[in-house]
Design a protein around this nucleic acid. Sequence first.
DNA 1: CGAAACCTTGACAATGTTCAATCACTGTGG
DNA 2: CCACAGTGATTGAACATTGTCAAGGTTTCG
Lengths: 241, 241
Amino acid sequence: MQSSALQQLDLFKQASSHSLNQLSQAFKRHFYKKNTLLLDHHTLALTFLYVINGWVKLFKENANGEEIVIDVLTKGHYCGDEFLFQAEETDTYSAQSISDVEVITLPLATLKRLLRSDNGLSIGFLEQSLKKRRNMYVETEHLNMKNAMQRIGCFILRLCDQHNGQKLTIHLPYDKVLLAARLGMRAETFSRALKKLSKECSLKIHDQAVEIACRDQLVHYVCPSCSKTFPCETVPKAFRI
Amino acid sequence: MQSSALQQLDLFKQASSHSLNQLSQAFKRHFYKKNTLLLDHHTLALTFLYVINGWVKLFKENANGEEIVIDVLTKGHYCGDEFLFQAEETDTYSAQSISDVEVITLPLATLKRLLRSDNGLSIGFLEQSLKKRRNMYVETEHLNMKNAMQRIGCFILRLCDQHNGQKLTIHLPYDKVLLAARLGMRAETFSRALKKLSKECSLKIHDQAVEIACRDQLVHYVCPSCSKTFPCETVPKAFRI
DNA sequence: CGAAACCTTGACAATGTTCAATCACTGTGG
DNA sequence: CCACAGTGATTGAACATTGTCAAGGTTTCG
């Protein structure tokens, strides 16, 4: 990892050159195959994880042994930072690749040491953490205000490049079981809701491909229940940090 | 606001004495009556708000004009920080007192200026922001995993001083309509669920008072669906035998 | 006093979950 | 190469939970 490459990232763009050098040496770069456990819940609480390419599932188990999906990360996303100043290992989770991935890792202890002496680095992490919180507020609102069909529609809309014309085809970035969990519903509910949504909004579904005849029709169904207007984000959710 | 008092707060405990002095001069202290609009959604995006005493509701309206409760703050809680580095005024909300309150406010611009030159201050804000995010993960999990009765029970348990004995009486800190919204359900659902919970777990409800005959009974009903164990704050499940 | 807010209750509708069955597809070992 | 197991996906039927609407009681406050 070049320190110049690091500086391109929002997280590090205000970091000192000393920090960037230290970081570029301390980071480890990894390539993993699909379905590999990247970090177990012990290690994750000690490690900063940044996704360069591919998709990563964050998950834990509840008391009944069922899997809870915390989040799904891709290019530009990261995790583990929330345990920086947390002594006890609690509320942690594991990370698993759901595609071939390229990631970088760094011991939180190293990061913490650098943060202590580099205000630019601290501010970068603060800024991104605040952004994550704003995103979480939106997600919570969606979970409360939107039904299954609307949440799926919202996810699809966020995959549309906003500069595209009306008619377009997008591809669901990972399997439907996981997507259902990510959107807070069961696989069966997802299957039915997607089918219903496709009738309602003139979509054609072929496996992972979603053909959208008229984007505005989808917007009209999905967005009224929301405090934002489409396009919600310049960059689709998948590529947000 | 004395700078020595400020330093007692987790947010500011690592701040430089220069920052503390600046802050203690820039802060404004306010006393408001119940049901006062403290900050509208424009002002809130420009203001740091810290609650000294009393209760504050954060809310906005959705497209249908219904109120969405974002959060309810009390002593030691704060908000507005998430707009520190956000140029556009989006996803904002308003703040209203729901009891007589004492709060302090500070323009975010001032805070931002101080953060730039005080790494201790930045780290304080980062640390608290990460803590908020960990709390939000727990809340999201609860919303997904717990039903109405369990969410109410969990809220009640968190009001119990963990060192109390089995039998105790707690008081709901604000009205049930708001509490229902805070817990992500309708007032009617709250009413029925609380009644059902009180039968299930030997509670006696008189208006705002909740008499708990056996706290463990409540724990037994509420906590199995959760990755934490009661008392939630201290003992991670990982260390149970 | 009267209006408004708070709270509860009943009947019913909407939404999502659970369970069981089925099918297609993929990768593995014999 | 085929049989087979496992995963992903869909569907139906029964069920559970929560929301909606309407009504009525209580409290609060001007």
